[in-house]
Computed example of a mutant assay.
Amino acid sequence: MARLAVIPGGRGGEAAASPSHVDAPAGLVEQLYRRHAAAVLARCRYLLRDDEAARDATQEVFCRALRASVELEAAASPTAFLLRAATNHCLNHLRAARAAWRDEVVRLARDRHERGIEPDARELVRALLGAAPAEAQEIAVLYFVDELTQAEVAEVTGRSLPTVRKRLREFLAATRGALRDAFPDVILPDPEVLP
């Protein structure tokens, strides 16, 4: 894949190494980047009114252009294609930022943080954790609550990856019966297919 030059004024500095080998689509995008990056960046700055967001948007436009190289080659005007892509990307970004659901998500997260875990849920979590061995409890909290990957859990706990998987299986096996009795409709994930 081609290494694209950095837009002047970006964090990477003024100079960028040129690629030793460039395939055809990447070469096309690199040429277009060299010619049109300033215009795309200017369009993004105008629409977003934020230099950092404009640089990110410019990068995203050229990444999309790389993925859409067939459409880009077929376009009557690559300049128009890139500027239209920049405009659409920035307008979508602005729409998403103004979306009403974002405020609702922020409010719900704030309310949940202030309120904490409901007493019934807290008791269920205690009961489920209490049904598992101590080491499986720690690993389950790191995996299911803190949302660490299995590799990250292994690193944090100093255990091997197979041990982490084994402890997660132990936790799920220990809690499966208790959860099935309390909530017959809840389906626990298969321990063999945990990500």
Rank of each mutant, 00 (worst) to 15 (best):
G12V: 10
Y33L: 12
E155A: 12
E155R: 14
D146Y: 14
R112G: 14
G12R: 07
H21N: 06
A76W: 10
T149G: 06
V145D: 04
D181G: 03
V141D: 00
R98L: 07
R112Q: 07
A174C: 08
L194C: 09
C63M: 15
R67M: 05
R3C: 14
A42N: 00
R45Y: 00
N88F: 03
P25S: 01
A15P: 05
E147I: 10
A68I: 08
E152C: 13
P119W: 07
R43Y: 02
D103C: 11
R84T: 11
A182S: 11
I187F: 10
P184L: 03
P8L: 13
E147K: 13
A57N: 01
R102K: 07
P195N: 08
V186I: 14
A26S: 15
A173E: 02
D190M: 07
L83Q: 06
E114P: 01
A182F: 05
L172E: 01
A74H: 11
A136H: 09
A24K: 13
R49C: 03
A151D: 12
Y33V: 09
N88R: 09
A74P: 03
A53H: 01
C63V: 15
H113K: 11
D111P: 00
E147Y: 04
P162K: 12
A2C: 14
A100G: 05
A76C: 07
L168N: 00
G130D: 13
D111F: 00
V145A: 09
A85L: 15
E170A: 11
A54G: 05
A151P: 03
S69L: 02
G116I: 06
A154E: 00
S18G: 04
V153L: 12
R64N: 08
A54P: 04
V153Q: 05
V61M: 01
Q59V: 04
V40M: 06
E152Q: 15
Q59L: 09
